[in-house]
Amino acid sequence: MKAKITPFLLFKDEAEAAANFYVSVFNGKLLKVDTYPEGTPMPAGTVLTATFEILGMTMTALNWGMEAKYLETISFAIEPETQEEVDYYWNALIADSGEEGPCSWLKDKYGVSWQVAPEILPRLMSDPDPKKASAVMQAMMKMKKIIIKDIQAAYDNA
Results as ranks from 00 to 15, higher is better:
T60K: 03
D34F: 07
L62F: 15
G111Q: 04
L106Y: 11
D34I: 03
K109N: 04
S113V: 10
K107G: 04
M137W: 00
W105E: 09
A135N: 05
I94W: 13
V23H: 10
A17M: 02
A19F: 05
D127Y: 08
A117L: 14
E84C: 00
E81I: 07
Y89E: 03
M57H: 14
L121F: 09
L106R: 11
R123M: 15
K144C: 04
L124V: 07
A68E: 09
F76D: 03
D13F: 03
I147F: 04
N20W: 00
E14G: 00
K69S: 13
M66N: 08
S126E: 00
E100C: 08
F26D: 05
P118V: 02
T49C: 06
T6H: 06
P102R: 10
M137F: 00
Q83V: 00
T35Q: 13
E84D: 15
P7N: 07
I54P: 12
K131V: 08
Q152S: 03
G98D: 00
V116E: 04
L121A: 12
Y22D: 05
E79W: 06
F8E: 04
M137A: 14
F52M: 10
L71V: 01
L62M: 15
P118R: 04
K32M: 12
N20M: 01
K69V: 14
Y155V: 06
W114G: 06
S134I: 00
K132H: 08
K29T: 14
V23D: 07
A19G: 14
S134H: 05
A133M: 06
E14M: 08
I5P: 03
W64G: 08
P102C: 09
K149I: 02
M140G: 12
T82I: 05
T46L: 02
K4V: 10
D13V: 03
A19P: 12
T35I: 09
A19N: 10
D156H: 05
E72Y: 05
P80D: 05
P37L: 06
A153V: 02
Y70N: 05
I78Q: 06
G98L: 02
